[in-house]
Design a protein around this nucleic acid. Structure first.
Lengths: 227, 227
DNA sequence: GTCTATAGGGTGATAGAC
DNA sequence: GTCTATCACCCTATAGAC
């Protein structure tokens, strides 16, 4: 008998038509976090269901028992990762910073914190992007509405600053690309950077990333400032 | 009968012990460039040998006839891609620019040209990096010796400029990461940037990247300049 | 050199005992 | 809920005809 929902919240039909909902996070949770770890690090195609079962320390059959299929398990991980990746911005909306400078400081700070805790997240997203499997923005998902809102206000702020002559006339794509690149790139290239730009330990790397929380906003501002 | 070398330079033993070397690039070349296109875009695990055969318009068996195995074909593509990726720097060495500014201008210019022609190259390299399959630097390969030389002179130039007080005191990893990130990131995130940072066509994107050839060195310099 | 057919092994998924 | 055993399919690689 298969669970009716994907996440172990079965409706068991008992005798006399009674129903009971059983919560049992432990095994399903083990599988899901193993899947998250492996899929995030290496992508969908490179991971076998057997790898996930082994990582979770459970039997292969349980994976299908709880999640029906590899694809469905991946979709679940993908959804969570995308929310994690975009979630750093939600707080921005809720915190309601108005100016470009405030937004900049907030985003840089929160994203670097996020990436320090989830260093493989950018690779996962870029992998989706490259394979064309990044799902379209879901109009019903409040998260995406917030993102769109943030993007619009961010772009508007850049536009206004340029019109007032406070910053150079610069295409918004440059600003977005620079900000994202300065935040994200060190994490996707970290093994290269650690090995080749001097021999840098994991701890030193993390300290340098924390240092970037202050530096990147300064850099972005100096890049945009009129001569 | 299998070809003795991987790349279709057979020694056929003819009657009376004569040998002749036959050059036949067309089929092997078709397979290799199909493999390059697909492996570069989606990585090793996501591509089947059937995909390559179809893309090349040849029979599946020919792939193994010419290249022995999927793995060997991938290794060949990997080697070529790594050389392509690092080759943009070789010319730098051969051109012998001395100062940091000269090196900076040269690298940015040549890398953006390279990436305009091979936009999927960074993803391929980062994919190798992430899966831990990037081969160690080969001491025998002159390419790697040149890279090491360039890296050292680049790092030395940064160090010297800081000692002379011409630029801020900044960890070299920041400089390398910033330069690489500003050059490479727009290409790995291009579909995201084109769709979400305003609706940007392929042509507009390329024009913006060409614009970055002038802007990035300015940005790097303004980032490093003492206040 | 190129094809068809198929071997051989891996992989996702399930049946059925407990 | 969890396990063992196994099916059915897919994928790489090769044998053998032409």
């Amino acid at each position: 008998m298969q669970p009716s929902s994907l996440y172990k919240q079965h409706d068991f039909t008992l005798g006399k038509g009674k129903k009971a909902t059983v919560q049992d996070p432990s095994t399903a949770e083990k599988i899901k976090s193993a899947a998250k770890k492996l899929f995030t690090k290496k992508g969908y195609a490179a991971i076998r269901t057997r790898d996930i079962a082994e990582e979770a320390g459970i039997n292969l059959a349980l994976l299908n028992y709880y999640f029906r299929s590899k694809k469905k398990l991946f979709d679940l991980v993908m959804k969570e990762n995308i929310h994690l990746f975009l979630g750093a911005m939600i707080e921005n909306i809720n915190n309601n910073p108005r100016t470009f400078d405030e937004q900049l400081d907030f985003i840089v700070d929160h994203y670097i914190d996020l990436l320090l805790q989830n260093p493989d997240l950018p690779f996962f997203v870029l992998n989706l992007l490259q394979s064309g499997k990044l799902p379209a923005e879901d109009k019903d998902d409040p998260l995406f509405r917030n993102i769109q809102q943030l993007r619009n206000s961010f772009l508007k702020n850049i536009q206004q600053a340029m019109e007032k002559g406070k910053v150079k006339n610069i295409h918004p794509l440059h600003v977005i690309a620079n900000m994202m690149g300065l935040i994200i790139f060190p994490f996707i290239a970290r093994s290269l950077l650690m090995a080749r730009a001097g021999h840098i330990s994991r701890k030193e790397f993390e300290e340098l990333m924390i240092e970037r929380k202050k530096l990147i906003p300064e850099w972005i501002r100096s890049i945009m400032r009129a001569p």
